[in-house]
C-alpha cells in the first residue's frame, strides 16, 4: 500500500505510530490489573479493555507495516523507547483504581472524538480503521463513564480518591491533544482535524460526565466552550518522555530481547 501523492507521508506515518503507541502503552498498563482488580467483574473488564487496546495498537502497526514494511512486533518489541511517540498520560504507573478509571475515561472520551473525526479523513485507511475501533470503544466509554459516575459520587472516600485522580489526570490528558509533528500539513491535506478542535469537543463531553460525578477540574467557560486553566503535560509526541516509559518499555521487551527477532 502506498500513501497517495499529495498527502504528507512523514507526518502521516508519525501520527499512525503515535496512535499505535498510545494504545500499546495504555493496554500494557491496563493489563497490570489482570489478577489484581477490586472485584472479579472489573478484573475481567480491564483485561478485556487491555486486549482491545493491544488489538488496536496491532491494527495501527499493521497499517504502518503495509506502508513501511516494519512488522508490528518490531515496532513494539525492538524499537528504542526514545522513539515511542505516545502521550505521557498513558505511561504513568497505574496508580490506585481511581486513577486508572479516570485516566481510562479521559482516554476513551478522547478516542471517541478522534475516531469520529477520522470519518472525514482524506486518507481512506484512517476512515476504515476508525469504524472498527469505534465499535469497541463505545463499550469502553460506557464502562469507564459508569465507573466515574458511581465512584465519583459513591462514598466520601471514593469521592476524595476520584477527585484527586481527576486533578492528576486532567493536565496529563491534555497531552492527548498535543499537536502531532507537522500537524498543520496533515490538517491542510484534510487527513485530520486540528487537535485543538478535538480538545474542545472532548472537554464538552467530559464536563458533562464530571458534573454528574460531582468532580471538578480546572476549566473556565468562555463563549459557551470550555478552556483548560492549567498547563498541559506535553512532550510525548516529540519523544520527551518520563522515566516511566523507559521502565515500561524495558519490561515490555524483556523476554523478546533475550533472542530478538526469533520466534517466541
Amino acid at each position: 500500500m502506498n500513501i497517495p501523492s499529495g498527502l504528507p507521508s512523514e507526518p502521516l506515518l508519525g501520527m499512525i505510530v503515535a496512535l499505535g503507541d498510545d494504545e500499546l502503552v495504555l493496554g500494557h498498563r491496563n493489563s497490570e490489573w489482570t489478577g489484581f482488580a477490586p472485584i472479579l467483574e472489573e478484573d475481567i473488564a480491564f483485561s478485556n479493555i487491555a486486549q482491545d487496546e493491544l488489538g488496536h495498537s496491532l491494527a495501527w502497526f499493521s497499517l504502518h507495516e503495509q506502508l513501511t514494511g516494519k512488522t508490528p512486533d518490531w515496532m513494539a518489541f525492538e524499537r528504542n523507547w526514545r522513539d515511542f511517540a505516545c502521550c505521557r498520560l498513558v505511561a504513568y504507573p497505574k496508580g490506585d483504581f481511581a486513577y486508572t478509571v479516570v485516566r481510562q475515561f479521559f482516554f476513551d472520551a478522547a478516542e471517541q472524538v478522534r475516531m469520529k473525526s477520522f470519518a472525514q479523513s482524506s486518507f481512506d485507511p484512517l476512515r476504515q480503521l476508525s469504524v472498527k475501533i469505534l465499535a469497541e470503544e463505545a463499550y469502553h466509554l460506557m464502562h469507564s463513564q459508569g465507573l466515574v459516575e458511581r465512584l465519583g459520587d459513591g462514598t466520601e472516600e471514593s469521592h476524595r480518591r476520584m477527585q484527586a485522580a481527576a486533578e492528576t489526570a486532567f493536565p496529563q490528558s491534555l497531552g492527548l491533544f498535543e499537536d502531532f509533528p507537522a500537524e498543520a500539513d496533515l490538517v491542510k491535506a484534510g487527513v485530520v482535524k486540528p487537535s485543538r478542535e478535538l480538545q474542545e469537543e472532548w472537554l464538552t463531553e467530559i464536563m458533562r460526565v464530571l458534573t454528574r460525578a460531582t468532580l471538578v477540574v480546572p476549566v473556565r467557560k468562555k463563549n459557551g466552550t470550555f478552556e483548560p486553566e492549567c498547563s498541559p503535560d506535553l512532550g510525548g509526541r516529540t519523544g520527551r518522555h518520563t522515566d516511566d516509559l523507559r521502565q515500561l518499555v524495558s519490561d515490555l521487551q524483556h523476554v523478546y530481547q533475550l533472542a530478538p527477532g526469533q520466534p517466541w
Binding site: P38, I39, F97, R150, L151, G154, T155
Partner: peptide, 11 residues
Amino acid sequence: GRWVREALAAK
C-alpha cells in the same frame, strides 16, 4: 480494592 466495593455498594 475495599473502597471500590464499598462505594459501588453504597451507590
